Simulated assay, not measured.
Amino acid sequence: MTKHVLVTGGAGYVGSHACKALKQAGYIPVCFDNLSTGWKEAVKFGPLEVGDLHDRARLDEVIAKYQPLAIMHFAALSLVGESMKNPAKYWATNVNCALNLIQAATDAGIDKFVFSSTCATYGDQDGVVLNEQTPQFPINAYGGSKRAIEDMLRDFGNSHGLRSVIFRYFNVAGADPEAEVGEQHVPETHLIPLMLDAIAGKRAALTVFGSDYETRDGTCIRDYVHVSDLVDAHVLGLKWLEEGKPSEVFCLGTGNGFSVREVIAQSRNVTNREVPIIEGDRREGDAAVLVSGSVKAKDVLGWTPKRAELETMIADAWRWHQAPEYAE
């Protein structure tokens, strides 16, 4: 039996890795992407259907063509700073597109939905290990839009029997160990690729935003999860739904964090190169410590991260940054 899964945002960083994991697990990932931030070259593991989630007719056409057993939804605007300056863009895009997608799925009789959410739904709860019971108080339009989609999935579950698995996580890092796909954004905002670009001379220096936080070395501390481990959890979430189990929410993280300076130090060990650094001021809205546990994902889903060491994440990312596929 052919098992198609519609993967929105499948040409992006996490989505492309999810497509590889799905293929390895015996599914056929159908990438649905408008290629506004994704990369056509990253679609290697199943068909590409170019389309926009605003376009309900196009969605219906693709769903009718492949008759997917489930939806895996990654497509979204995701820049926190931009969402604070232009909230209308985030509410109009993230929420309206998700509503279109959910309605298209339920109208087609699809009852399984895996959603890439975020720990930004919790807001600024500095120094707390976040879990599934932590109250959600988003402080920007990005987190607010993701929280709204979570609520939408709950409501459609009650009204239409749509079962969902929601994953909340912070910092995704690393790249496919075989360097078939990796991390690239325009503009780039993530610490590790910015750092590696600085090492490789693709940018002048890495800016460290704030060195006077109440942390062990004065810089912000964040939780990191390897992208390959992350998408493995998404496949487990899909299998959970295939087994007829109910909707669930899982946080994905280590429960431990690394400071900016610790990430920089580890990169020196991996690359044997120095990181050119500019000391900058704090950014508005940056919490000192943000970490997310994953006890429930391990106990309930049986999720076992295989590449949880920071050194491994940086080494895999560095390998990708040196690959011919990496955009100059």
Rank of each mutant, 00 (worst) to 15 (best):
V5I: 07
G9K: 03
S16A: 14
S16V: 09
S16W: 06
C19N: 06
L22N: 06
K23Y: 13
G26L: 15
Y27P: 04
P29W: 02
V30G: 04
C31S: 13
S36E: 15
A57R: 12
L59C: 01
L69A: 07
A70F: 00
I71F: 00
F74I: 09
A75I: 09
L77V: 07
L79K: 14
V80K: 06
G81L: 09
E82D: 11
K85L: 13
K85F: 11
K85S: 13
A92L: 10
V95C: 02
A98R: 00
L101M: 03
A104M: 00
A105C: 00
K112R: 11
N131E: 12
E132K: 04
Q133W: 09
N140I: 07
G144F: 05
D151A: 15
N158A: 15
S159Q: 15
R163E: 05
R168C: 06
F170I: 11
A173S: 10
E178S: 14
A179P: 05
V181A: 01
V181G: 01
G182L: 03
E183H: 15
V186K: 14
T189N: 10
H190Y: 15
L191A: 05
P193M: 09
P193K: 10
L196Q: 02
D197T: 06
D197V: 09
I199Y: 07
G201D: 11
R203C: 04
L206N: 04
F209M: 12
F209N: 14
Y213M: 14
T215E: 03
D217A: 11
T219H: 03
V225S: 10
V225F: 05
H226M: 11
D232T: 13
L236D: 02
K239W: 05
E242H: 08
E243I: 14
E243G: 15
K245H: 10
V249K: 09
L252F: 05
F258G: 09
S259N: 02
R261Q: 14
V263E: 01
V270D: 05
I277T: 06
G280E: 02
G285D: 08
A288F: 07
V289Y: 02
S292I: 12
G293W: 07
S294I: 01
A297S: 07
K298L: 09
V300M: 03
G302T: 08
K306Q: 15
I314T: 05
A315K: 02
Q322W: 05
